[in-house]
Design a protein around this nucleic acid. Structure first.
Length: 769
RNA sequence: GGUCACAUAGCUCAGUUGGUAGAGCACCGUGUUCACAUCGCGGUGGCCACAGGUUCAAGUCCUGUUGUGACCACCA
């Protein structure tokens, strides 16, 4: 193979694309080695690559490439998530922008539009991941809404229902008034806000007295079904059991004693609104109170003659509150306004205030599924890296609440349930099965109505470990690649995704979905601030790659992946990485001009010179450090190992020394060592290593070339130490020279100390000049 | 309110079983003799947040304090 001369400067844009397309064919599983599987957290179909993805993908790619190089049959399972609410939102917005009135579209029309959108614009992120060098077998991609995956979702839903782990129930759920759907507890974000605690008088029936309740949400008073005071609160003892009338209505409610009322807070008297407050709901259950809804799905006051006064019906909540407060004030019923800071729940997608509402929803009995999922971690079958995340996991899993899985949107897996005319429920895999089941009860097909709700996106993502591999079919792929090996993800989705995958996998596969979970940090800007569009500090990884190359970005992200610390990404750091890669590039150029041979196997070397023994010992150490750090998921150490070996050891000393000792043995050693450095570094910086490797004639690709071993017996065990001392002496010599402008004194001292290795000493003195 | 992190050079951070404090950036000096100015060489710079304790020995282990952050819960 004739090697081309390397360009004078390192310019990754000239070869990265080409390297990717040339090596892509090696990314799929193709050996008989031990299986090694990594599940790519499926990005949203609408997603584009942000720095968080870049970090996540870089780490996975390092792990995957390392294992692939070392003989594992490696599958990095890619795919995309349909991302229910997010996608429906994005596509609807785009359609609106094109002048389409989304509200007028039928369910099926909108679904069709979204599929069209997906075909045209979905999955842009895959191309970006290629730019980053992700060694993914793209043909294995799955989509959570593709046919097979949907089949798995149905299978799981029906089975869980029939096993009594899914149920339908009227409960208080978090209601998003923008998207008009229920959402799960996890999808709300609390925000601290300044608010007001309004003290309002309710008239005690049959007297002229008033009792004062305190509330932040006066408009919900029409849903009140009791007023609670603390049982030991002497101020109100006498009123317990009496009734009060809700202003502007004739409705009377009882004053009850309940510990929910905090004597210290507000007036000590609290209105109980079971249909619009989670705590009140519990109090309501305890006292068997009526549950009255006064807020509709859009976030307006219900048009309900019975409970809501005329002047508020149909008004948007904020407006209703304003009008009501004015009226209460005019009528002297508003007795105090207290400024407070409280946290208010917002929908994480809609960014609107979440209203608890009483609705019929589908739930997963997560408590039962959690039992085995907790055990899997307790038994050490699943390990978190860093370990501390176990606590987070346990904490949530042990206090898990029923998981609301139904969403009143259209983009997602429609729940396979059919209702009969009298509320009968038939949950079946197909419509035919439902019809058949209904027929047994004398219900005809025409009378059946299918559930229109779809499932929470995370319900399907929870099946990712096995549904991507073909489940419920017993495929070869499933057989070979399940359970998977390492899951790489950010801590923000431990509950959303990791916990659910473990629960689902334990139930359906009876064994954990993965062995290791590597939890990485979130990427922040260089000042440690969260990136956000409004702050304008979002860093686009594509721009960084354009400017410095994908390898520099990857190296940077790995370098910054210190466990338990935020990844603070700044341009400077990427530049530093690029500079380091330039160093590698220039070392290659030097070796090329020296005409070293790169293709000598490490095991064929028989070093006689101390310098060569030394570099081989250092290389061996480097290899084993990398192996250990791969095992420990210490990617920050790996980059430091690379830097130390290449710069401090190889370039600064060995290559410099080589300028005074360039015999055949040394040249062969240099070539072999450098080639090995490229192989070992390849998982982190695949593009430049592959490019150098092919240009220098080492190998067409390093994708499948594992590390080479150095025979212990050929190494002189003393050489490393001796040369290490020389290196130190060199530093001393230079330092002395810098300080005194002379080297003589130190030189003489050295000469005495290292008389036995004269050859090398002359190199040292030459280098010091 | 509960849990968990973190606090080391001007900045960003390493410091893996306790054993003379490290790197990069920045700064100062210096060097383009043919790999590399996207660089080399040398240097300045630290009461390791604070207070106790364990130990022959503490940046490292324990307790407390302060500060910062994250998550969970509450949120009339």
């Amino acid at each position: 193979m004739t090697a081309n001369l390397l360009d004078k400067t390192y310019n990754p844009s000239l070869f990265e694309k080409d390297i990717y397309s040339r090596t892509e064919k090696f990314f799929q599983p193709q050996s008989n080695g031990q299986p090694f599987t990594v599940l790519m957290p499926p990005p949203n179909v609408t997603g584009s690559l942000h720095v968080g993805h870049a970090l996540n993908c870089t780490i996975q790619d390092i792990i995957v490439r390392y294992h692939r190089q070392n003989g594992y049959d490696t599958l990095w399972q890619p795919g995309m998530d349909h991302a229910g609410i997010a996608t429906q939102m994005v596509v609807s917005r785009e359609l609106e922008a094109q002048g389409v009135d989304v509200k007028k579209l039928s369910r099926n029309e909108l679904i069709e539009k979204i599929w069209e959108w997906k075909a045209k614009s979905g999955g842009k992120i895959f191309e970006q991941q290629k730019s980053l060098g992700c060694s993914v077998p793209w043909s294995y991609s799955r989509f959570t809404m593709d046919e097979g995956f949907s089949k798995a979702v149905t299978e799981v839903f029906v089975k869980l229902y029939k096993d009594g782990l899914i149920f339908r129930s009227k409960r208080l759920v978090n209601w998003d008034t923008k998207f008009k759907t229920a959402i799960s507890d996890l999808e709300i974000q609390n925000k601290e806000e300044k608010g007001t605690l309004w003290h309002i008088n309710y008239k005690i029936s049959g007297t002229d007295k008033y009792i004062t309740i305190a509330t932040t949400r006066p408009e919900t008073m029409f849903g009140d079904t009791a007023v609670a005071v603390h049982p030991e609160d002497e101020r109100y003892n006498e009123f317990i059991g009496k009734s009060v009338t809700i202003p502007y209505t004739n409705r009377e409610i009882k004053i009850i004693a309940d510990e929910q009322a905090d004597m210290e807070k507000g007036s000590g008297c609290v209105k109980i609104t079971p249909a619009h407050d989670h705590n009140d709901f519990i109090v309501g259950k305890r006292h068997n109170l009526e549950m009255i809804s006064v807020i509709d799905e859009d976030g307006h006051m219900e048009r309900n003659e019975e409970f809501v006064p005329d002047f508020l019906q149909g008004l948007y909540l904020k407006k209703a509150r304003k009008i009501l407060l004015e009226k209460l004030k005019d009528d002297g019923l508003l007795v105090k306004e207290e400024a407070i800071v409280h946290s208010v729940p917002y929908g994480d997608r809609s960014n609107t205030v979440i209203e608890p509402r009483l609705t019929d929803q589908w739930f997963v009995d997560a408590k039962k599924l959690a039992v085995d999922a907790i055990k899997a971690v307790e038994d050490g079958k699943i390990k978190f890296y860093p370990e501390k995340w176990e606590n987070t996991y346990y904490d949530w899993m042990r206090n898990i609440e029923p998981w609301c899985i139904s969403r009143q949107i259209i983009w997602g897996h429609q729940i396979p349930a059919w209702y009969g005319p009298n509320g009968e429920i038939f949950v079946e895999k197909t419509e035919e099965d439902a019809v058949e089941a209904a027929a047994k009860l004398g219900i005809s097909k025409d009378q059946l109505r299918r559930e229109t709700d779809v499932l929470d996106t995370w319900f399907s993502s929870g099946l990712w470990p096995f549904a991507t591999l073909g489940w419920p079919e017993k495929t070869e792929r499933l057989e070979k690649f399940y359970p998977t090996s390492t899951l790489v993800t950010g801590f923000d989705i431990i509950f959303f995704w990791i916990a659910r995958m473990i629960m689902m996998s334990m139930y359906f596969m009876k064994e954990p979905p993965f062995k290791d979970i590597y939890v990485h940090a979130l990427v922040r800007d260089e000042k440690g601030q969260k990136m956000s569009k409004s702050k304008g500090n979002v860093i686009d990884p594509m721009l960084l790659m354009d400017e410095y190359g994908a390898d520099a970005l990857r190296y940077t992200l790995a370098f910054l992946s210190v466990p338990g610390r935020d990844v603070k990404l700044g341009k400077d750091q990427v530049k530093i990485s690029r500079n380091f890669i330039t160093k590698i590039w220039n070392a290659a150029r030097f070796l090329q001009t020296k005409e070293v041979k790169f293709n000598i196997g490490l095991s064929d070397l028989k070093p006689t010179k101390k310098l060569n023994h030394w570099i081989l010992s250092k290389l061996k150490k480097f290899q084993s450090e990398i192996a250990q750090n791969m095992k420990d998921y210490r990617f920050d150490y790996i980059t430091r190992n690379m830097q130390y070996f290449l710069r401090d050891v190889f370039c600064d000393f060995y290559v410099e020394a080589m300028k005074f000792q360039d015999d055949e043995e040394t040249k062969n050693t240099a070539g072999a060592v450098f080639a090995e450095f490229l192989r070992v570094s390849h998982p982190v910086i695949p593009f430049v290593t592959d490019y150098l490797s092919s240009t220098l004639g080492i190998s067409d690709t390093l994708v499948l070339k594992g590390i080479q071993t150095i025979k212990e017996e050929v190494l002189d065990p003393n050489a490393e130490e001796e040369v290490d001392e020389l290196v130190e002496s060199l530093h001393a010599l230079r330092s002395e020279k810098q300080a005194n402008g002379t080297e003589s004194e130190v030189y003489v001292k050295l000469k005495n100390e290292f008389d036995n290795i004269k050859g090398e000493l002359s190199i040292i003195s030459a280098m010091a000049r």
